[in-house]
Design a binder for these strands. Structure first.
Length: 272
DNA sequence: AGGTCGACCTGGCAGC
DNA sequence: TGCTGCCAGGTCGACC
């Protein structure tokens, strides 16, 4: 999915466009994206006022009156706002269409159908939100909190960064970028990191995610923001997708290998 | 309990 | 114009 920076970008876009609008109609073109009985999903949403748009980890949370519309985009989900009078550009990947008040429309597109849409009265009803770890850009996420999450964990640090129970919102692109920024090898066992390395890692998590939010996220293929536009962070990635190309710090070729069934990119000179 | 791996899906692209 | 295999911003459940 879109990772934290991409979801945060969408959240900010949607907060401006759909806050205060009412969901007047719900049309499911493929009910597989709805992770509850589809009739109940539609019944709960229709007529609801959108009070606010929040984010937790990689999940978008639309606050309704006593209910939450939880959207997990996973790998290829998109939420696209279509302004009143603008032609609703539904595409083959459009799986749900939400008719909003004042003539606006919200499209949910998802090529791979991994995304999850649900409406709950309490956020813990979502298995993801029930177990999710600390929010990395919130003040409560300190170096000590990170250290406590890593303690005793006998897994490669790259794999652990992808675990949303450890830190929320980090995905496969930013895990590689963060470790490069911190100068730490993705192969290091989490429990072996020194305190000063954890401090660097903590700073790198914040720096990389903040920079990516400023650039409105990374678009490889499917990611689009709430206005249907790609993000710009791909222009400044240091290692992700750059295998064989020279490291921007030392010139050594960037390496790719597979870790926990996901690609990892790193520089063996700069990351120890 | 913590760690590993397959499953869930569709589609783009490289190589033959 | 195939076909095959590999790759893709994620999460969960079954297994050891």
């Amino acid at each position: 999915m879109p990772e934290l920076p991409e979801v945060e970008t969408i959240r900010r876009d949607l907060a401006k466009t759909i806050t205060g609008l009412r969901i007047e109609s719900v049309f499911l073109r493929d009910a597989r994206v709805v992770r509850m009985p589809p009739e109940e999903f539609v019944r709960r949403l229709e007529g609801q006022l959108i009070l606010a748009v929040h984010r937790r980890g990689k999940a978008l949370l639309l606050e309704l009156d006593g209910l939450w519309f939880v959207i997990q985009l996973m790998m290829t989900g998109q939420v696209v706002y279509v302004a009143p009078g603008q032609k609703a550009a539904a595409v083959k990947e459009t799986k749900a269409v939400f008719g909003l008040s004042k003539g606006a429309t919200l499209l949910y597109n998802d090529q791979r159908l991994f995304g999850r849409l649900m409406v709950v009265s309490r956020l813990e009803e979502s298995g993801y939100l029930k177990v999710i770890g600390p929010e990395p850009l919130e003040p409560g996420f300190t170096s000590e909190v990170l250290a406590s999450q890593l303690r005793g964990r006998n897994v490669a640090i790259k794999t652990l960064l992808l675990d949303h129970k450890v830190v929320a919102g980090i995905g496969n692109i930013y895990a590689s970028e963060i470790l490069f920024r911190a100068g730490i090898s993705p192969k290091r066992k989490a429990k072996r990191l020194k305190t000063r390395e954890i401090t660097r890692l903590h700073q790198a998590i914040k720096d990389v995610l903040r920079e990516a939010v400023r650039m409105r996220g990374t678009s490889l293929r499917n990611y689009r923001d709430g206005r249907g536009m790609p993000g710009r962070y791909l222009r400044v990635v240091r290692v992700y997708g750059r295998d064989g190309q020279p490291c921007l710090e030392c010139g050594e070729p960037v390496k790719r290998f597979v870790q926990a069934q996901r690609s990892t990119y790193f520089c063996s000179q700069c990351q120890k």
